[in-house]
């Protein structure tokens, strides 16, 4: 399946609530996740998304799909 710009945008949007409440989830496991940890994880997610978009995105060559 092709990975469209719109889909990437939607995935970024959906990642925001997860990121905001990540510390609560960590708290359930008695882990004190610092704010900077959340920032790093969200950043890594965005980086991953960019890589995937580069590989399978709308403008990628058919060979890469």
């Amino acid at each position: 399946m092709r990975f469209t710009k719109a889909q990437a945008l939607i995935l970024i949007a959906f990642s925001i609530p997860v990121a905001i409440e990540l510390r609560t989830v960590a708290g359930f496991f008695n882990y004190d996740l610092p704010l900077i940890g959340v920032v790093v994880i969200e950043f890594l997610f965005l980086a991953l998304l960019f890589v995937l978009y580069g590989l399978y995105g709308e403008k990628s060559t058919p060979a890469a799909q």
């Binding site: 719109a6 970024i12 949007a13 925001i16």
Partner: peptide, 17 residues
């Protein structure tokens, strides 16, 4: 239009949560 609805979603997630 798409950017607008995404901004609303993200903005509301921040504000309302």
């Amino acid at each position: 239009g798409l950017l607008q609805v995404v901004l609303w979603f993200v903005g509301m997630v921040f504000m309302s949560n």
